[in-house]
Nucleic acid binder design. Structure first.
Lengths: 194, 194
DNA sequence: AAAAATATAACGAACATTCGGTATGTTAAA
DNA sequence: TTTAACATACCGAATGTTCGTTATATTTTT
């Protein structure tokens, strides 16, 4: 690969990374291209060489994030055999990502997409969310979890860990999330078990 | 009351109402004082006559919203005798408010406060949240709910209904939330019952 | 030398805020 | 009770700043 191609890719990745950080910390509208350029240590012109607009950066970040969560959920649900352990793995992975890949998950959960893209659905209500609902519906039919409204089930599965994660991010919880994960899973499982 | 005092109060309330709507719909940084002025049918100067800055409006909205939720939770928890029904009432009221006073709850749950006020804690992690945690701790000691970490308990109580409300707002759910409230409460109660 | 990557300078629009001025309500002296 | 003095509510143009974006210049790679 040519040196310039590599450099170009590196710069693009840097712009993505720093943009996501700033969008999460300061909000999309409160982040200027000058902020991004400064954070990357490059000029605004360099940004416009790689992207055609601020919005394009945000849109690509959305798509990347949806893909990331889709892959995460898909792999997680395939990694175990029993339903109980599939769900346990999902809860654990969510909590893990909340600490290990905080910015990405904050971007997915906190950024209001319709503020940027008109008619754009929030990440957690699009692909990844629907995938979980489909999974839960199938498990219901197999009798592996309690029969209930599929939306309610999805809300039970995601609502409890996500809320824990959010109060951790808000600094209400000081301790490491790891110590809560077993208790959180048991709570989730109580709402779903047949 | 003097005519001017009344007029002043009406204008201030109008500015509050329209600002909150716009902050929720368009976001704080994407809402200009011109937007607010236009929505109120007044001039930007009139706004500065009543408030000293855009930030002051937002800060006052925060404080009002915290008070509103505090009162709601306090009254709700006193309105029933049995723990089970206190919690049921709380879940039902949350769901009711999500439809009847959507803008206020969206402001409480969606607006990222640190974007506006540095060092400001999110509403749902401050007063109202702590009140629920204290309530749950007391109920645990009395043996009315299962002994568990108080943060986990609070997360179970709030996380499930709040997530339902959010996917309704995101238009993932089309139906009226009322039809889910019994099932949602039962899910919450399963995680808490002794 | 050509092309790609980056830097710099500048544009017009939109922003929060300020301010001189007006119209209306309120108070108090005549 | 009339009227003069003041206070409050509001207007809309103007201020200086920052924004996203573009045009152009410079550097680096091919």
């Amino acid at each position: 690969m040519k040196i310039n191609d590599e450099r170009s890719l590196l710069t693009q990745k840097l712009i993505f990374k720093k943009s996501m950080e700033l969008f999460v910390i300061k909000g999309y509208h409160n982040t200027s291209l000058r902020d991004i350029a400064a954070e990357c240590g490059i000029s605004t012109g360099a940004i416009y060489h790689h992207f055609s607009s601020k919005e394009e950066i945000a849109v690509k970040l959305f798509n990347d994030t949806i893909l990331f969560l889709n892959n995460l959920f898909e792999e997680t649900l395939q990694s175990k055999k029993e339903t109980r352990y599939k769900i346990k793995e999902l809860v654990f992975n969510l909590i893990r990502i909340a600490e290990e890949d905080k910015i990405t998950l904050q971007f997915a959960l906190n950024i209001k997409h319709k503020e940027i893209i008109k008619d754009g659905k929030p990440i957690c209500s699009s692909g990844p969310f629907e995938m979980l609902r489909t999974f839960l519906k199938n498990e219901m039919q197999k009798g592996n979890i309690k029969k209930m409204d599929s939306y309610v089930a999805t809300v039970c599965l995601t609502g409890i860990p996500v809320r824990l994660i959010q109060i951790k991010w808000d600094n209400v919880i000081k301790k490491d999330l790891d110590i809560y994960k077993e208790e959180i899973f048991e709570a989730v499982w109580k709402t779903l078990q047949p």
